[in-house]
Structure formats: structure tokens, C-alpha cells
């Protein structure tokens, strides 16, 4: 890439026309890089994908961009569910078929590639507290690296049977606080359950801990929002963080929950147990 002129990577939106014209050279350039990477054997995953189309020349660019799309498209979520009337609630449901299908096969496939796949919406929250969406079997290699002591699951559904082995091997303790997400107009996240969740998460005995629900957006977002309130973050920044992880399905009710949550119980509990203030490592 050293010989590459600067302008193919122009970052200014105003210069869109110019950068569009120079798309072809980039395509060729990145292709060369692809082939170089393939030779290095670093991306065996891609090797498999690309290898099927005998000689890939410039037309594999769409292939390059494809991995990005599923993360943001919600089409796939909505299609095969029969509860069409609450489109936005589909996220709250665990699609069990998805996890059962790709159990043992998926594990075997993910091992030889050596590529780490974090669960969608994965991020550290504070120190040894992490958040994510529902982990797939192909995230297990990544999760092992976190050396988790426990996992806090915020959905009522049980894990597929195939997960037990992984949790046992890793000695991970499972906490399950099944709560329904905030749904207009009647269903609310319960204050008490979130308080219980905070107690579990803040307990150093349970850390490192991973918090997850189904998509890592709403229920996890509410819990993280409450943790931020205990850190005394300003509400605007808490909402900003919530929206980043919930996009494109931000729920005003979740933000309202975070704002109105009564923290007096948990604060009393946390102060008694020396859990506040939460300091950065």
C-alpha cells in the first residue's frame, strides 16, 4: 500500500465525486492485497469463501463488503417469525432454531480458522464487566480469552443443551434473570430485577462477567445505563451510549427507564458492601 496515492482514501464527504471516480484502482489494489493475505495464510476464512469462484478478479469486491450488511439489516430478523404485528419486538425473542442448527458443525469450522469472532455488540463496560448479544457457538473461542467467571443472561429462555459443555469446561457460573424488554404499551422492565442484576454484576467474586440478552441492545442497554448512573455519568452521555448499541432500534422507553430508575436501594446496598464508587482499573 506504500505506493498508493493518498486520494483513494480521501475521507471528506464533500469529495465524493472524486473518490467515486477512483474506485477502480482501489478495487485492483485491494485485490492484490487479498491475494497477498491469502498467501500468508492469515485469512483462511476468506480462502474458503473466495476459493469457490475459481479465479477471482475485480468482481469479488461485493464479496468484500458483504460481511458488513447483515449487521445492520433487520430484514432477516423479521422474515421467518409469525408474530408480525410487533415487528420491533422480534429482537427480544430468542430464535432457537438459529442456535440449534449450527452447533457442533460450527465449532469444528471455527477452530481451524483461528479467527476470533466476538459476539455482535460486544464491548467492555467497566474493567472486567463485558456486554454482548446472545453468544453463538462460534464465539466460544473468543469468549475463552476473556477467562469469564460468570455470565449474566437477561432473557427467560434456557441455553441450548450444547452450551452446557462449554460453560462447564470454562467453569463459568450462569446467572439468569429472565426479564421481558420494554414494550409499549404495557410491558416494563422491572426495577427490582435490574437491582438484582446490578448486585450480581458489581460483585467482584463474579467478575470477569459477561452481560447479555438476545441482541445486546435493549435489556443489556438498560442495565449498562443503570451502571453508568451509578458511575454518575451525565444522562445525555448515557443515552448516547445506549443509542450506539441499540441502533437502529433505539427505544425511548428504555431511555426513560434508565432516567427514572430509582437507584436508592442499590446505592445503599453498594455503599454497605464497599462497591461504590466504581473505579477504573
Amino acid at each position: 500500500m506504500s505506493g498508493l496515492p493518498e486520494d483513494p482514501f480521501q475521507m471528506d464527504e464533500e469529495l465524493d465525486d472524486r473518490s467515486l471516480k477512483s474506485v477502480n484502482p482501489i478495487a485492483r489494489e485491494s485485490n492484490q492485497q487479498d491475494q497477498r493475505l491469502l498467501r500468508d495464510g492469515n485469512t483462511s476464512n476468506k480462502l474458503k469463501a473466495v476459493g469457490t469462484q475459481s479465479h477471482q478478479v475485480p468482481n469479488d469486491i461485493p464479496e468484500l463488503l458483504n460481511p458488513v450488511a447483515p449487521t445492520y439489516g433487520d430484514v432477516t430478523d423479521a422474515v421467518d417469525d409469525d408474530e408480525q404485528q410487533y415487528e420491533e419486538d422480534l429482537d427480544d425473542k430468542l430464535d432457537r432454531s438459529m442456535y440449534n442448527q449450527k452447533t457442533s458443525k460450527e465449532v469444528q469450522f471455527s477452530l481451524p480458522t483461528k479467527e476470533l469472532t466476538p459476539p455482535e455488540n460486544f464491548a467492555p463496560v467497566i474493567n472486567n464487566i463485558y456486554r454482548s448479544s446472545f453468544p453463538h457457538p462460534n464465539n466460544f473461542t473468543f469468549l475463552r480469552k476473556l477467562k469469564l467467571k460468570s455470565v449474566l443472561c437477561l432473557i427467560p429462555e434456557d441455553y441450548p443443551d450444547s452450551y452446557a459443555e462449554f460453560f462447564q469446561e470454562e467453569g463459568i457460573h450462569i446467572f439468569q434473570l429472565g426479564m421481558s424488554g420494554n414494550k409499549e404499551p404495557f410491558v416494563n422492565i422491572s426495577n427490582e430485577l435490574i437491582t438484582e442484576a446490578v448486585k450480581i454484576v458489581l460483585d467482584p467474586k463474579n467478575q470477569p462477567i459477561l452481560i447479555h440478552c438476545n441482541r445486546g441492545k435493549h435489556r443489556t442497554g438498560c442495565l449498562v445505563g443503570v451502571l453508568r448512573r451509578l458511575q454518575k455519568w451525565s444522562l445525555s452521555i448515557i443515552f448516547d451510549e445506549y443509542r450506539k448499541f441499540a441502533a437502529p432500534k433505539e427505544r425511548p422507553m428504555d431511555q426513560q427507564f434508565i432516567e427514572l430508575y430509582d437507584e436508592s436501594d442499590i446505592e445503599r446496598y453498594a455503599e454497605k458492601n464497599g462497591l461504590l464508587p466504581i473505579r477504573w482499573d
Binding site: M1, P8, S30, L116
Partner: peptide, 29 residues
């Protein structure tokens, strides 16, 4: 990390105008 996960994380922080393919090509290459 695999590239799809890298991209997901990158785009989480890019705001309403979204991610730039140029940045992703840079990361990939």
C-alpha cells in the same frame, strides 16, 4: 478478530453518516 466483527465495531462509533468503505479497505489491507 475477523473482518465482519471489526467492521461492526467501527460502524458503531461512526454516527449517523455511517462508516466509510475507504476506512474499511484500509483496515482490511
Amino acid at each position: 478478530w475477523n473482518l465482519a466483527s471489526v467492521s461492526e465495531e467501527y460502524r458503531r462509533f461512526t454516527g449517523a453518516r455511517g462508516g466509510r468503505i475507504m476506512v474499511e479497505l484500509l483496515i482490511e489491507g
